[in-house]
Amino acid sequence: MNINKVEEGIFKVLMKTSTLLVLVSLFLIIYSILQKGLPSLSWAMITQTPKGGFFLGKGGGILNAIVGSLYLAGGSTILGLFISLPVALYLNVYRTKTSQFADFTRLCLDVLWGIPSIVYGAFGFAIMLLIGLKASLLAGIITLTLMVIPIMVRAMDEVIMTVPKGLIDASYSLGATKIETSIKVVSKQVLPGILTAVLISFGRSIGDAASVLFTSGFTDRIPTSLMQPAANLPLAIFFQLSTPIPEVQDRAYASALVLTVIILLISILSRIATKKFTKHKSLV
């Protein structure tokens, strides 16, 4: 029997097993969250803020964390978009694709993407002290914005790169300025791509805890101003799980289920957006 064939056969089995293992790990995670979270999930949990003694097993829910997370993620995504879109356009429309400056910027952004969120948290905390800001919704949003800028710029950049040069040239030849071309032609062309970038960074910032640990504070109330502290889901899960009381731990599992569902929804939405984008590209 041919030894090469045997070796290939063995490795084929190993490769399939590995792929299966990678997928199974995802299903295991989702399954165990569902199994542990579903029984303790209740309507009250997602519609009420914590009542007195919540962390001792008394009534209430995690509405404060849900709303806080949406504020934090929404705020940082909107702020991030206003900073990232111009950068992504500048890299592509103002600077040609082969420019060294653009390459260096992309390298810096890729490196920033890899920086751990706890480092952003520590840096955000240092800035907070510097400008005399207390742990608040605003400080959390600023820190998360710094974290999502590289993600957004690179995601949009990848999409803008695919805009045909002919389209941009055609816009110029009709007398449009670079600004007009950026906003009216390029941005419009890559709108679904921008949506994907927005969803990716929303998902990233809603699930991140390490960066807001120092900066956003934690409270049982829903914040009514930017200067108030804000709770968020990952930290709510973490704090509830840290208590020794089983009922509170059960609620941590239910909260984890809420967060997982939000993340999965975002995943599906961004997939739909990407599909739509691919359709547009084939038309050009």
């Binding site: 995670i29 165990s32 991140d208 990952p234 899960i237 599992y253 997982t260 993340i263 995943s267």
Partner: peptide
């Protein structure tokens, strides 16, 4: 089939991995 699932895995927050770690 596999690629989207790997993307979903990439999006799962750290705290969920932590909870799964504790459960399993």
């Amino acid at each position: 089939f596999v690629n989207p699932l790997i993307d979903i895995l990439a999006g799962i927050p750290s705290v969920i991995f932590g909870i799964w770690g504790i459960i399993e």
